[in-house]
Nucleic acid binder design. Structure first.
Lengths: 195, 195
DNA sequence: CACATCTTGAAACGATCGGTGCAAGATGTG
DNA sequence: CACATCTTGCACCGATCGTTTCAAGATGTG
């Protein structure tokens, strides 16, 4: 029934990523992965290894697809920290609004939430978060924020990013998500209202 | 080996809630539930029904335990919307810091994230979120916010609440969580920094 | 004590889980 | 064509999943 591979490896990985994206790690069964990719079990295991390896490759695939978008949005000159925050969150909003990907990404947010994920996968997720955090901090510093404000804003923007994914998954409208993102861009440069 | 129940039903439900709290719905296997509650399979099924029913009862148990805390923090008079937001998020921070509950609650945040949860459970989670939202909106109106600001702040505070749970689960420090909560309290009453 | 009621532990159910073995078939090379 | 190499579909593995069944034992009532 075969001599050379009858599928595109990169496209299959993209589809597998979308299965994890939609179902998370535990609920992404091998049957769902074979169905989503169109591959048979043998092809899936022969090409990508076992489930946890495939998940890690899906994470890598996600990073190499979307991290450049964040990098591009943050690399240019920005007039203020607020603009940096808004630009970062806009990338997330764009990704959520993308009709070619499943609704509600369970890769970035809930990867750390699924207890079934092994230590190697957890470490990879943490490294991805750390990379985005550094990316944000550099852009904030370049936009004129001091060290303390940079640390705070990077953290809060990451937090907002996570909440956008959660709210999206929970069925909140894109208008609501845009409202949350816009409010996060209003945090910079404000004194504490509490004593 | 028994004639009358050899355990406290309410305490067993509390422990079952903590198992879902720690593991989420899919990863909370019956074995983990029997181990966590100390009950046998027969007692568990005989008392609480099947797994999805037990999860719903755990959700109810969570709501009746923690929603009064939010209600209490919001019911008194507040000088400003900022204080309302801060008071609300402080309840979440306190719950996260509680040493008697597991680290990283997968009940409120990720209940909507787990595809395995049935429609009835999903609806219950949405109803809980809706109740908290209404509670917040009433307190914000009472604190002098107009309709538009109330809607925006209630949404953003809910979003921050979710992100706190996610960041907590991801291993961020309690100082980081407090920073995020404090920054959210700085949103009210600020003009948009972007054109 | 007799008897109905309830609870419990243990075994077992079918279904699904992630993963493997293997023969059949397609390909590239000689 | 002969042959080694690779891929694929299919069956199957043990383990675990949620759930049910059932007999044994403890209790409350007469």
């Amino acid at each position: 029934m075969a001599g050379r591979k009858q599928f595109d490896v990169d496209e299959a990985l993209r589809r597998a990523m979308h299965v994890f994206w939609r179902w998370g790690y535990s609920e992404a069964s091998i049957d769902r992965l074979t169905e989503g990719t169109g591959l048979g079990r043998s092809s899936l295991y022969g090409t990508f290894g076992d489930k946890s390896t495939l998940f890690r490759k899906s994470l890598q695939r996600y990073a190499q697809t979307y991290h450049p978008l964040y990098d591009q949005a943050l690399s240019g000159p920005h007039p203020s920290p607020s603009v940096v925050v808004a630009a970062y969150l806009q990338v997330t909003l764009n990704r959520i609004a993308d009709p070619t990907v499943p609704d509600g990404c369970l890769l970035t947010v809930s990867a750390t939430q699924f207890p079934a994920l092994d230590a190697e996968g957890q470490a990879m997720v943490r490294a991805m978060i750390c990379g985005l955090r550094t990316m944000l901090e550099q852009a904030l510093l370049a936009a004129g924020a001091d060290d303390q404000e940079t640390a705070e804003l990077a953290l809060c923007t990451l937090a907002t990013n996570k909440s956008l994914a959660v709210l999206s998954r929970a069925g909140f409208s894109s208008e609501d998500l845009a409202t949350v993102a816009a409010a996060a861009a209003r945090i910079p440069g404000r004194p504490h209202p509490l004593p």
